[in-house]
Design a protein around this nucleic acid. Sequence first.
DNA 1: CGTTTATTTTACCTTCTGGTTATTTTACCC
DNA 2: GGGTAAAATAACCAGAAGGTAAAATAAACG
Lengths: 126, 126
Amino acid sequence: MVAAADTLSQTFAALADPTRRAILGRLAEGEATVSQLAEPFDVTLPAITKHLKVLERAGLVERSKRAQWRPCRLKAAPLRDAAGWIADYRRFWEASLDRLDAYLQKVQAELPADPKNKKGSQRGRK
Amino acid sequence: MVAAADTLSQTFAALADPTRRAILGRLAEGEATVSQLAEPFDVTLPAITKHLKVLERAGLVERSKRAQWRPCRLKAAPLRDAAGWIADYRRFWEASLDRLDAYLQKVQAELPADPKNKKGSQRGRK
DNA sequence: CGTTTATTTTACCTTCTGGTTATTTTACCC
DNA sequence: GGGTAAAATAACCAGAAGGTAAAATAAACG
């Protein structure tokens, strides 16, 4: 425990499920009720309710009451923060920097690695 | 099961833990061994090994062997895809669009509230 | 060879997750 | 009020997560 359920963790955890990502995708097209959201998926409604609760706790979805419906709409603010966190790593994947970096680290890893390289004689146990 | 553990889900799941994000942060400064990575945290080494395995399976970390050390380095490629997914929602949080959108959806929510759109003629999705 | 250092593996435990079915609640409608 | 549709809740379950302590590997070193 102690996990503290920080906002960023909740956001990423919410995004770590394909069903939930699809729900957000659907909500990007506009408000939808729970049944409408559930329709494309092969799961029961309570399962969708749970997913929505996760999304709601993560601040990614907001719900209102309209008659017996509970329409949901997208709230993208947490995505801004998530994108912000990831953006710090942009330089690592941009251009060939990733490969260059890998190369440099590999060289750095190889040089001071084997001053002698002895062979062990232990070989038959498991 | 059936979840298929798609790449994006694995990436987001890996990022959903503060310890793992901190590990990535440390690796952004350069290669590090397991013990070095573990040092700032109040957890045992096996816990770090597990976190590293998660990061490795997500393709965010690559490891090599150097003597008895297993130096880790950052691989940011999956972050590019994650950033790409989130970027699709950029318009929802930018500027005042979020509030405007909320307003529009609220209005939209209030107006067509009462018609007798009962059986499946709501929207015809699918 | 035996020791030491670095890391992984092996149980094992507890909590969280995602799913289910069955039952309630909520609110409209006649 | 009774019926009906939408959604939530309750109770339950299997499996994954994150953690631990203790034992096992791996590789340098003396």
